[in-house]
Amino acid sequence: MGILGYLGRVAGPDRTPALNHQLASLLALVAGILNSVGFVAVAFYTSHMTV
């Protein structure tokens, strides 16, 4: 299964609790990476949050 198949399963309407946990972890990881890259890029604290 490729990355698109995995993302379709994780972000699709039929998710299991395990897939919900994976999705939350993936979103937290991406947000953390964006925060650190933003801080390094502009030398000022930036925060990227999802609602």
Rank of each mutant, 00 (worst) to 15 (best):
S25M: 06
R9M: 06
L29G: 04
A18L: 05
V42E: 15
L34H: 03
V40R: 11
L7P: 07
A41T: 08
G32P: 02
L34E: 04
S47F: 06
S25V: 03
A28P: 05
L29V: 05
G38L: 03
S36E: 14
V10N: 04
T46S: 12
F44E: 14
A43P: 02
G32M: 04
V42F: 14
Y45T: 06
G2L: 10
G12W: 01
V30R: 07
V40Q: 11
T16N: 00
A24W: 01
V51T: 10
V37R: 11
M1C: 12
R15M: 02
Y45S: 07
Y45A: 05
F44D: 15
G2N: 13
T16D: 01
M49Q: 11
S36H: 15
Y6A: 13
G32W: 01
Y6F: 15
P17M: 04
L4W: 13
R15P: 02
Y45Q: 06
Q22D: 07
V30N: 08
M49R: 11
V37E: 12
I33G: 06
G5D: 15
G32C: 04
S25N: 09
M49A: 12
F39H: 13
D14P: 03
V40W: 09
A31M: 05
A31C: 04
G8H: 14
G5E: 14
T46M: 10
A41S: 10
G38E: 00
G32D: 03
H48K: 07
V51I: 10
L27K: 07
G8S: 15
R9I: 04
I3N: 15
T46A: 08
D14M: 09
N35H: 04
A43C: 10
I3A: 15
I33W: 09
T16E: 01
L34G: 00
